[in-house]
Amino acid sequence: MLHVTFSRVYTFCAAHRLNSPWYDEMKNFEIYDKCNNASGHGHDYRLEVSLIGTPDRQTGMIWDMVDMDSKVREVLDTLDYKHLNREVPYFRDKIATSENLIQYLWMHLEKRFPPDYLYHLKLWETNNNYFEMGRSNAQ
């Protein structure tokens, strides 16, 4: 049985500040450095969403792309042009790192598709670093 994945790339922009309530000011700066900047900073995030499945016999598609876009945008709209710490309730008690952000994305995207359809997420924070989460063995 062969598997086919289908991926789309999305972008959104958001502000955040990395600051842990567990540590004092000095320790926070030591850990997060410039990401600790008091008034925050932002990124153009790039998200690659991969679905896995069997192409429909009639349409030849794993999932309708227009529908996929609207489902993904629904989730991204909760983040786009927002300050994650201040405007997204999930990050009230979680630090707005991309490790936590990708888990938020997975949680909200997974339930919009049938079980096991969401296969892989790749979240670029800058052009130099990215975060992945998924079902593949070698990510």
Binding site: N128, N129, Y130, M133, G134, R135, Q139
Partner: peptide
């Protein structure tokens, strides 16, 4: 639960 990975480019 699936795992999270982090990558850096050089």
């Amino acid at each position: 639960m699936t795992r999270v990975s982090i990558s850096r480019k050089f």
